[in-house]
């Protein structure tokens, strides 16, 4: 077990033409922690996510993930699917991206593709239904069943994902990401659109993922209930820059964060900006 942070961003910059979406961002996410990335709308949170999961190639800077065995991966040059395949970074999406026409169970089986692909001898053994593959498939269904239970979706396992209610779709997306057996789970606004009861249940789910599977979690969230209750560490972004970082209690009382979120009087802005050094 290495003590290096699971995820480490150094001087990450992402530029879209004239727009500087992420500006020289550096932070670490500790192994086994829930790290929250917050900030007002348009702060660049999702862009950071897309850089980490390889959907964008950052303009400059580096992103490293270190596995438990000390193996280190540089993510900035890897294409998206290789990051999920080799580095085991899984993600969910702000606007849910399930396979709507496939059942909940099938969604979870697709997530175990790479493992099953090897078990099926790249399709050849699987085509003739050899026992090795059938065993692997049973295991895959068992893992899927485990996560369906965890997300309280067992009853809906055989329904198409597109027919599930919104909250259930959010949970299913998390279950699907967990079926890839990730070391780092990136959640893009998992509580968006959930009612208070559902977001409490989400807290329970995320805590149990953290405690039982030792998966580190990085999450973007606007729902402060979720953020303050479950995160171990919070990073605050505004206009692509990190303006603060610390424990939830520290962030809650940080003037710069309050200013970024709530806005302040003109002279106060100048005062705060002078403090930040803008």
């Amino acid at each position: 077990m290495t003590s290096a942070p699971i995820l480490s961003l150094q001087n990450l910059t992402m530029r879209f033409g004239g727009l500087l979406a992420v500006d020289d961002l550096s932070f670490n996410a500790k192994r086994g922690d829930i790290t929250a990335l917050i900030g007002p709308n348009g702060a660049g949170k999702t862009t950071v996510f897309n850089c980490i999961t390889g959907f964008y190639e950052p303009t400059s800077g580096s992103i490293h993930v270190t596995h438990d065995d000390g193996k280190k991966f540089a993510l900035e040059k890897l294409p998206d699917f290789k990051i999920a395949q080799r580095v085991h970074v899984a993600r969910t999406f702000q606007n849910i991206r399930l396979f709507a026409g496939m059942t909940a169970l099938e969604n979870l089986l697709v997530a175990q593709h790479n493992r099953l692909m090897i078990a099926s001898g790249y399709t050849i053994f699987g085509l003739f239904g050899l026992p090795g593959y059938r065993k692997a498939e049973r295991e895959a269904v068992e893992l899927a069943r485990h996560w369906l239970e965890k997300t309280q979706l067992t009853e809906r396992a055989d329904d198409p994902a597109g027919s599930l209610p919104y909250g259930a779709q959010r949970r299913l997306e998390i279950a699907r990401a967990m079926c890839t057996r990730p070391v780092l789970l990136c959640l893009d606004e998992p509580a968006a659109g959930l009612n208070p009861r559902e977001s409490d249940e989400l807290n329970v789910l995320l805590r149990s993922i953290k405690n039982e599977t030792k998966t580190s979690i990085l999450l973007i969230e606007h729902d402060m209930n979720v953020v303050m209750e479950i995160s171990d560490h919070v990073v605050v972004l505004d206009h692509g820059k990190k303006i603060s970082e610390g424990t939830p209690d520290y962030i809650r009382n940080d003037q710069k964060v309050i200013a970024a979120y709530l806005g302040v009087e003109e002279d106060a802005v100048e005062k705060v900006e002078a403090e930040v050094g803008l």
């Binding site: 699917f81 395949q85 999406f93 593709h113 790479n114 890839t180």
Partner: peptide, 13 residues
């Protein structure tokens, strides 16, 4: 159904 989700699961499209 969804190519982006497929890539996020580590499947080579």
């Amino acid at each position: 159904e969804d190519e982006i989700a497929v890539r996020s699961l580590g499947i080579n499209p």
